[in-house]
Structure formats: C-alpha cells, structure tokens
C-alpha cells in the first residue's frame, strides 16, 4: 500500500512539537482547520523544519472512514473525525515522548500557583479528575504548565510548559461550568471536547507539592502526606520514563521526593476542593518564599 507522503504535497499543518518539526497532511479543509486548532498551542514550523521527518497524514476515505498515517504506515482507522483527532494527537505525543531521554515524563498535570512561586503536580490515572481539578484551580488563578504530559527537567526538577490542548469531556465541562469563575470555553475553531487555555505558566518553577487525587466523595477535602517510599512508588507508577530511562526516572524521583511533599487528596465538592487546595498551596508558597 502506498503511504500518504507520496499522495499529498500541500495542505499540510506544520508545527514544532518539543523542538522537532512535525508535518500533518490533511487534504480536507474542514478537517485541516480542526487539526490546526487542536495543535495551535505548538509553534508553527517551516517546510524546512519538517523536511527531515516522515509526515503524518489524516484523510477521509471514500468509505467514510478516517485514516491516520505515520510515514508509510497506517496507524489508525476511525469512524469519526473526533476519534481521528484523538488518534493523531496521541500519535504525535507518543512519538515525541519516545524520543525524550533528557527529561522525566510523568502522567499528570502541572500548574503554577497564582503568586508564581511554586508549581504543583497533579498525578493520576485518566478519569480520576485531573483535568477537572486543573480547570478548577485555573479558575482560582493557577496557570497550567500542562494538563496531561509533565516534562520535568531532571537537574532543576521543574516542569516545562507543554501547550497541548486539554481534553475536556461533557462531565468535566458540566462540573467546571458550575464554578463561579469557569473558563471561557469559546476558542475559535476548536472542536468539541478540546480546550486551549488563554495563558500558560511560562517560566519553570520548583515543585512545591505533588498531589494525588484519590476520591471525590469526602464532605471536607483532606490532604494526607505520603511517606517518602510511598511517594516514590506513586511517582514511579505515573512515570512515562521508567521503562525506557529507568536510571533517570529513579534518580529524579529520589530527588523530587526529598524536596517536595507528596499528598493524597481526598476531595469533595469541586469548588470546596479547589478552594481548600488553593489555600494549602498558598501556604506552601509562602513558606517557600520565606525560605528563600
């Protein structure tokens, strides 16, 4: 079978993802606008930047199915554009993460506190409420480094901004819409299920705390400090680097658990939980500021 790289010479979305040029051929104009929107957090790239790497392609077939290609390999076939976009984004990020061996990858969100003193990592499996909590904290002045892929500098232990669009399902959106100051969802051209923050954290900040949401049914939110060994196991459980760069993941974990406390969060109603966590982080931030 012929790969898409020989079929498409134009109508290409070019972005720089983690320093590498990425080209995505999308012949359908409507589909292309959707791809441009979900990748709009990543800087533009030139044709020259992307020439060295096999392009991706997303195309709608005569059968009505969408196909995603990576070079000459068809990686996904979907029945909806939404699923095709998910597959494309997943493939781009997965390929990017597979190349990284100089930073530690954690599955979770990272935010800068409102004063810009410390960062907070929120780790957890998909569906545990990371994005919901992240959006609720953003409504209280926190700024995101990332919603899903934390890239930690192993020397400074600081997260870096990764401007990937948030995935926001209907449940999350309904919960966040009930907050007094929810986000402005209306981002021009953004497909349903995605959200692009207007501002990001920017400069790296030291990690003030690691939060691991455990439950959302507590009347009064509660933070429980984890012993260092349990914190280390938790961090490694959510490490995307452990398999391919285990020594780096272990050393980074040891240093991070020595400098930043790790808490299990037993959350309650979203607004109350966000307020509680916001106040707890503010205290940490003040202690950190006083320390320096």
């Amino acid at each position: 079978m012929t790969g898409p790289s020989t079929r498409f010479g134009h109508d290409v979305v070019r972005r720089t993802v983690d320093g590498r040029g990425v080209a995505v051929a999308v012949p359908d104009e409507g589909d292309r606008h959707a791809v441009e929107a979900i990748l709009s957090g990543f800087p533009d790239a030139s044709a020259r930047d992307t020439a060295a790497h096999a392009p991706y392609a997303l195309r709608r077939e005569a059968t009505g199915l969408w196909e995603l290609w990576s070079g000459a390999t068809r990686t996904h076939q979907t029945t909806t554009l939404e699923d095709a976009l998910l597959a494309l984004e997943w493939q781009l990020v997965t390929d990017m993460l597979a190349r990284i061996d100089d930073r530690c990858h954690l599955h979770g969100a990272a935010l800068a506190d409102p004063s810009g003193t410390v960062s907070v990592l929120v780790l957890g499996e998909s569906g545990v409420g990371k994005t919901t909590l992240t959006l609720a904290l953003m409504a209280r002045g926190f700024r995101p480094f990332t919603d899903d892929v934390i890239l930690l500098d192993p020397e400074t232990l600081e997260p870096r901004t990764f401007e990937r669009a948030f995935h926001v399902d209907q449940t999350t959106r309904a919960l966040v819409d009930a907050l007094p100051h929810g986000p402005d969802w209306e981002v021009p051209g953004m497909p349903d299920g995605y959200f692009m923050p207007a501002t990001w954290a920017g400069d790296p900040l030291p990690v003030g705390a690691v939060i691991v949401p455990k439950a959302r049914d507590h009347e009064r939110p509660l933070l429980v400090a984890l012993p260092i060994a349990e914190a280390a196991t938790t961090l490694l459980t959510f490490s995307g680097s452990l398999e391919h760069a285990p020594a780096l993941a272990l050393k980074t974990t040891a240093r991070l658990t020595a400098t930043a406390p790790c808490y299990a969060l037993y959350g309650g109603p979203l607004e109350r939980t966000a307020q509680f966590l916001s106040e707890a982080v503010e205290e940490m931030s003040q202690r950190k500021a006083a320390h320096f």
Binding site: P227, A229, E230, A232, T237, L242, P246, A249, K251, T257
Partner: peptide
C-alpha cells in the same frame, strides 16, 4: 535491578526486566 536510596533511608528497587517496583525500609 536498579536501586535508588531515598531521603529517609528507605529505598526503591526497579526490576528492568519484570518492570516490578519494590520499596525497602
């Protein structure tokens, strides 16, 4: 197996083949 000493004297082990984690007091 890779081992890393933690700040409280405990240790975390990682078996690179079985991908199992273990903590030691």
């Amino acid at each position: 197996v890779l081992g890393e000493l933690l700040a409280d004297g405990s240790m975390v082990l990682y078996h690179t083949a079985s991908r199992k984690l273990m903590t030691l007091n």
